[in-house]
Amino acid sequence: MYQLPHAIALHRLSFAVSGSESAEPSFLGRTPICHTLSYLRFLRRGRVQHLLHQLKYRGQRDVGQVLGRWYGHELAQQNFQFDLIVPVPLHPSKLAKRGYNQSDPFAEGMAESLRTPWHAAGLRRIEHTDSQTRKNRLERWENVANVFEVTDPAMIQGKHVLVVDDVLTTGATLEACASVLLAAGATEVSIATIACADR
Protein backbone atom coordinates (compact mmCIF):
# COMPACT_ATOMS: atom_id res chain seq x y z
CA MET A 1 0.00 0.00 0.00
CA TYR A 2 1.21 3.52 -0.80
CA GLN A 3 2.37 5.28 2.38
CA LEU A 4 1.04 8.82 2.62
CA PRO A 5 3.60 11.26 4.06
CA HIS A 6 2.78 12.56 7.52
CA ALA A 7 3.72 16.06 6.39
CA ILE A 8 0.67 16.18 4.14
CA ALA A 9 -1.14 17.66 7.15
CA LEU A 10 0.61 20.92 6.31
CA HIS A 11 -1.59 21.20 3.23
CA ARG A 12 -4.97 20.36 4.74
CA LEU A 13 -7.93 22.46 3.66
CA SER A 14 -11.47 21.27 4.24
CA PHE A 15 -14.66 23.03 3.12
CA ALA A 16 -17.22 21.71 5.58
CA VAL A 17 -20.19 23.75 4.34
CA SER A 18 -21.39 25.16 1.07
CA GLY A 19 -20.75 28.85 0.75
CA SER A 20 -17.04 28.65 1.55
CA GLU A 21 -15.29 31.72 0.19
CA SER A 22 -12.71 29.53 -1.51
CA ALA A 23 -15.08 27.18 -3.29
CA GLU A 24 -18.47 28.75 -3.80
CA PRO A 25 -17.67 31.43 -6.42
CA SER A 26 -17.14 28.68 -9.01
CA PHE A 27 -20.85 27.88 -8.87
CA LEU A 28 -22.45 31.12 -7.75
CA GLY A 29 -25.69 31.86 -9.59
CA ARG A 30 -25.60 28.85 -11.88
CA THR A 31 -26.22 25.33 -10.60
CA PRO A 32 -27.57 24.81 -7.07
CA ILE A 33 -24.91 22.83 -5.21
CA CYS A 34 -25.77 21.65 -1.70
CA HIS A 35 -22.22 21.20 -0.37
CA THR A 36 -18.87 22.03 -1.93
CA LEU A 37 -16.19 19.94 -0.21
CA SER A 38 -12.45 19.46 -0.67
CA TYR A 39 -9.99 17.56 1.48
CA LEU A 40 -6.59 19.06 0.62
CA ARG A 41 -5.11 22.24 -0.83
CA PHE A 42 -3.41 21.76 -4.19
CA LEU A 43 -0.15 23.70 -4.47
CA ARG A 44 2.02 23.49 -7.56
CA ARG A 45 5.07 21.30 -6.99
CA GLY A 46 3.75 20.49 -3.52
CA ARG A 47 3.12 17.18 -1.78
CA VAL A 48 -0.52 17.06 -2.82
CA GLN A 49 0.39 17.46 -6.48
CA HIS A 50 2.87 14.61 -6.07
CA LEU A 51 0.19 12.40 -4.51
CA LEU A 52 -2.26 13.15 -7.28
CA HIS A 53 0.34 12.39 -9.94
CA GLN A 54 0.94 9.03 -8.28
CA LEU A 55 -2.79 8.35 -8.40
CA LYS A 56 -3.45 9.69 -11.88
CA TYR A 57 -0.38 8.69 -13.86
CA ARG A 58 1.52 6.07 -11.85
CA GLY A 59 -1.22 3.53 -11.20
CA GLN A 60 -1.24 4.10 -7.43
CA ARG A 61 -4.95 3.48 -6.84
CA ASP A 62 -4.27 3.04 -3.12
CA VAL A 63 -3.65 6.79 -2.86
CA GLY A 64 -7.25 7.51 -3.87
CA GLN A 65 -8.71 4.78 -1.68
CA VAL A 66 -6.82 5.87 1.44
CA LEU A 67 -7.65 9.55 0.97
CA GLY A 68 -11.28 8.64 0.28
CA ARG A 69 -11.52 6.60 3.47
CA TRP A 70 -9.90 9.35 5.54
CA TYR A 71 -12.10 12.09 4.15
CA GLY A 72 -15.22 9.96 4.28
CA HIS A 73 -14.51 9.27 7.96
CA GLU A 74 -14.20 12.99 8.68
CA LEU A 75 -17.44 13.78 6.83
CA ALA A 76 -19.25 10.97 8.66
CA GLN A 77 -18.11 12.42 11.98
CA GLN A 78 -19.61 15.75 10.88
CA ASN A 79 -22.89 13.97 10.06
CA PHE A 80 -22.77 14.49 6.31
CA GLN A 81 -25.15 12.09 4.60
CA PHE A 82 -25.59 11.22 0.93
CA ASP A 83 -27.69 8.65 -0.88
CA LEU A 84 -25.28 7.84 -3.71
CA ILE A 85 -21.68 8.64 -4.68
CA VAL A 86 -20.81 9.03 -8.37
CA PRO A 87 -17.32 9.74 -9.74
CA VAL A 88 -16.74 12.10 -12.65
CA PRO A 89 -16.27 9.75 -15.62
CA LEU A 90 -13.49 9.62 -18.19
CA HIS A 91 -14.21 9.27 -21.89
CA PRO A 92 -13.87 5.58 -22.93
CA SER A 93 -10.81 6.34 -25.07
CA LYS A 94 -8.98 8.00 -22.17
CA LEU A 95 -10.12 5.25 -19.80
CA ALA A 96 -8.69 2.62 -22.14
CA LYS A 97 -5.39 4.49 -22.36
CA ARG A 98 -5.02 5.13 -18.61
CA GLY A 99 -6.48 1.82 -17.48
CA TYR A 100 -8.73 3.22 -14.76
CA ASN A 101 -10.55 6.36 -13.68
CA GLN A 102 -8.58 8.14 -10.94
CA SER A 103 -11.84 9.29 -9.32
CA ASP A 104 -13.09 5.71 -8.81
CA PRO A 105 -10.79 4.72 -5.91
CA PHE A 106 -11.55 8.00 -4.14
CA ALA A 107 -15.29 7.33 -4.53
CA GLU A 108 -14.80 3.77 -3.32
CA GLY A 109 -12.90 4.88 -0.21
CA MET A 110 -15.47 7.54 0.63
CA ALA A 111 -18.33 5.10 0.14
CA GLU A 112 -16.71 2.67 2.56
CA SER A 113 -16.35 5.25 5.35
CA LEU A 114 -19.69 6.94 4.73
CA ARG A 115 -21.47 3.60 4.32
CA THR A 116 -23.03 4.92 1.16
CA PRO A 117 -23.41 3.09 -2.17
CA TRP A 118 -21.33 4.27 -5.11
CA HIS A 119 -21.73 3.67 -8.82
CA ALA A 120 -18.71 3.90 -11.12
CA ALA A 121 -20.93 4.20 -14.20
CA GLY A 122 -23.63 6.49 -12.84
CA LEU A 123 -22.50 9.16 -15.28
CA ARG A 124 -21.17 8.68 -18.79
CA ARG A 125 -18.96 11.03 -20.79
CA ILE A 126 -20.43 11.02 -24.29
CA GLU A 127 -17.92 13.32 -25.97
CA HIS A 128 -14.15 13.38 -25.87
CA THR A 129 -12.85 16.79 -24.78
CA ASP A 130 -9.47 18.46 -24.80
CA SER A 131 -7.52 18.67 -21.57
CA GLN A 132 -8.75 21.41 -19.22
CA THR A 133 -5.27 22.10 -17.86
CA ARG A 134 -4.35 25.17 -19.91
CA LYS A 135 -7.85 26.57 -20.46
CA ASN A 136 -9.28 29.66 -18.82
CA ARG A 137 -12.60 29.65 -16.96
CA LEU A 138 -14.80 30.34 -20.01
CA GLU A 139 -12.93 27.84 -22.18
CA ARG A 140 -13.35 25.16 -19.52
CA TRP A 141 -17.08 25.84 -19.43
CA GLU A 142 -17.43 25.59 -23.19
CA ASN A 143 -15.29 22.44 -23.24
CA VAL A 144 -17.60 20.39 -20.98
CA ALA A 145 -21.01 22.03 -21.41
CA ASN A 146 -22.77 19.05 -23.00
CA VAL A 147 -20.52 16.05 -22.57
CA PHE A 148 -22.16 14.08 -19.72
CA GLU A 149 -25.30 12.01 -19.38
CA VAL A 150 -26.95 9.97 -16.62
CA THR A 151 -26.84 6.27 -17.44
CA ASP A 152 -29.86 5.23 -15.36
CA PRO A 153 -32.18 8.06 -14.26
CA ALA A 154 -34.16 5.71 -12.00
CA MET A 155 -30.99 5.14 -9.96
CA ILE A 156 -30.72 8.81 -8.99
CA GLN A 157 -34.39 9.79 -8.78
CA GLY A 158 -35.14 11.58 -5.49
CA LYS A 159 -31.59 11.13 -4.17
CA HIS A 160 -28.89 13.37 -2.79
CA VAL A 161 -25.95 12.54 -5.06
CA LEU A 162 -22.33 13.26 -4.17
CA VAL A 163 -20.16 13.78 -7.28
CA VAL A 164 -16.44 13.21 -6.67
CA ASP A 165 -13.33 14.14 -8.65
CA ASP A 166 -9.61 14.62 -8.07
CA VAL A 167 -9.16 18.42 -8.19
CA LEU A 168 -11.52 21.38 -8.03
CA THR A 169 -10.29 24.28 -10.16
CA THR A 170 -12.95 26.38 -11.89
CA GLY A 171 -15.63 23.77 -11.17
CA ALA A 172 -16.80 23.59 -14.80
CA THR A 173 -16.63 19.80 -15.06
CA LEU A 174 -18.30 19.22 -11.70
CA GLU A 175 -21.05 21.69 -12.44
CA ALA A 176 -21.74 20.06 -15.81
CA CYS A 177 -22.16 16.74 -13.97
CA ALA A 178 -24.39 18.31 -11.33
CA SER A 179 -26.61 19.89 -13.97
CA VAL A 180 -27.37 16.62 -15.74
CA LEU A 181 -27.99 14.84 -12.41
CA LEU A 182 -30.48 17.47 -11.30
CA ALA A 183 -32.17 17.44 -14.70
CA ALA A 184 -32.51 13.66 -14.46
CA GLY A 185 -34.29 13.79 -11.09
CA ALA A 186 -31.72 14.05 -8.30
CA THR A 187 -33.17 16.17 -5.50
CA GLU A 188 -29.78 17.51 -4.38
CA VAL A 189 -26.21 17.35 -5.63
CA SER A 190 -23.04 17.94 -3.63
CA ILE A 191 -19.46 17.74 -4.79
CA ALA A 192 -16.30 16.50 -3.10
CA THR A 193 -12.76 16.50 -4.41
CA ILE A 194 -9.43 15.26 -3.15
CA ALA A 195 -7.97 18.72 -3.53
CA CYS A 196 -8.84 22.31 -4.31
CA ALA A 197 -6.53 24.44 -6.44
CA ASP A 198 -5.96 28.07 -5.53
CA ARG A 199 -7.59 30.33 -8.10
Results as ranks from 00 to 15, higher is better:
89 P>Q: 11
89 P>E: 07
91 H>I: 06
91 H>G: 00
91 H>R: 06
92 P>R: 11
94 K>V: 00
94 K>H: 07
94 K>F: 02
95 L>K: 14
96 A>R: 15
97 K>D: 02
98 R>A: 07
99 G>S: 13
100 Y>T: 14
101 N>R: 09
101 N>H: 12
102 Q>F: 11
102 Q>L: 11
102 Q>H: 15
102 Q>N: 08
103 S>W: 03
103 S>N: 14
103 S>Q: 12
105 P>W: 09
105 P>Q: 05
105 P>K: 06
106 F>A: 09
107 A>S: 14
107 A>G: 07
107 A>E: 02
108 E>L: 15
108 E>F: 14
108 E>G: 03
110 M>Q: 01
112 E>A: 12
113 S>F: 04
113 S>T: 03
113 S>L: 06
115 R>W: 03
116 T>G: 00
117 P>F: 05
117 P>M: 08
117 P>R: 14
117 P>T: 00
117 P>V: 01
118 W>F: 09
118 W>I: 01
118 W>R: 13
119 H>D: 10
119 H>I: 01
120 A>Q: 15
121 A>Q: 12
121 A>G: 05
122 G>A: 14
122 G>R: 14
123 L>W: 12
123 L>C: 12
123 L>M: 13
123 L>Q: 13
125 R>Q: 05
125 R>A: 01
125 R>L: 02
125 R>C: 03
126 I>Y: 04
126 I>E: 08
126 I>Q: 05
127 E>W: 05
128 H>A: 07
129 T>H: 02
129 T>L: 01
129 T>A: 04
130 D>K: 02
130 D>W: 01
130 D>T: 06
130 D>A: 12
131 S>C: 01
132 Q>D: 05
133 T>F: 05
133 T>L: 04
134 R>C: 00
136 N>V: 00
138 L>D: 02
138 L>N: 04
138 L>R: 05
140 R>W: 11
141 W>M: 02
141 W>G: 08
143 N>K: 01
143 N>C: 01
144 V>T: 02
145 A>M: 02
145 A>F: 07
147 V>M: 02
147 V>K: 00
148 F>W: 12
149 E>F: 02
150 V>N: 13
150 V>F: 08
150 V>T: 13
151 T>D: 11
151 T>V: 14
154 A>V: 10
156 I>S: 11
158 G>M: 10
158 G>Q: 14
158 G>Y: 11
158 G>V: 03
160 H>T: 06
161 V>K: 09
164 V>P: 09
166 D>T: 09
166 D>F: 10
167 V>D: 06
167 V>S: 08
167 V>W: 07
168 L>D: 09
168 L>C: 10
169 T>R: 11
169 T>S: 09
169 T>A: 03
171 G>Q: 04
171 G>L: 08
172 A>T: 10
173 T>F: 15
173 T>N: 12
174 L>N: 10
174 L>S: 09
174 L>V: 04
174 L>W: 11
175 E>L: 08
175 E>A: 11
176 A>M: 10
180 V>T: 15
180 V>W: 10
180 V>L: 14
180 V>Q: 15
181 L>P: 12
182 L>N: 08
182 L>E: 14
182 L>K: 11
183 A>G: 14
183 A>K: 15
184 A>Y: 13
184 A>N: 13
184 A>M: 13
184 A>P: 09
187 T>M: 03
189 V>S: 13
189 V>M: 10
191 I>N: 11
192 A>P: 04
192 A>N: 01
